[in-house]
Amino acid sequence: MHTAIKIENLSFRYPKQSSDCFSNLNLEIPQGARFGLFGPNGAGKTTLMNLMTGVLDFSEGNIFMFDKSVKAKDKEVKKLFGFVPQDFSFYQELSPVENLEFFGAWAGLNKNDIKNRTENLLNILGLSEVKNKPVEKFSGGMKRKVNLAIGVIHQPKILFLDEPTVGVDVQSRHEIIHYLKQLNEQGTTLVYTSHQLNEAEKLCNKIALLDEGRIIANDDLDKLLQHHAQSDLELLFLNLTGKEFS
């Protein structure tokens, strides 16, 4: 199996902080994985995701996506992945179609591809009826779906999802997880963080547990549960970190 993401000896410290967030961190995420990155608050999950997506710059170590260095900030690297941030990072004054038209163009798609992908995505995510209404009038669940649609409009090989279902009702959450699994079956590697451990169990087949900037476990979810004789992810987490997952 190919490696989708490879992190080598990564060290990172925020300006004005006295200690490193990460020191010589190493991690490999195989292509086609549904990879869950978990840890307590402040463990560094979002920071690591921001480093992988190039939102934050690092000076020591390296991160590769399909053997291409993220450091280069090359357009070709950026085309490889999509990013679904925790915030509603789009234009709420605009409709889903208008948002997808803009982000699609910026992701490098042509007019026809944008049109086809937009129709397809809005159908799959159940947003066709509201496709021309301003997103600011949508419910939290519908906004999450728009956020997700923007992240996948250009059919990336890797999709980073930072708490993609936070504040979403059960039905919308189920639809989002279902869609993510479909994407994965089509070959997209998922890199996912969440506080919803039961949801994570349904979605992820590989996980890494992050605590105080260190990876304390990294394997198939089934193997980890079996190895530590735990019945679910929450108990596994407690067992390994000694901390409540919040």
Binding site: K75, K78, P85, F90, W106, A107
Partner: peptide, 13 residues
Amino acid sequence: ISGSFIRLKTLPT
């Protein structure tokens, strides 16, 4: 604030 700028930073433009 919305993070749109951050998202634009991750796009190949």
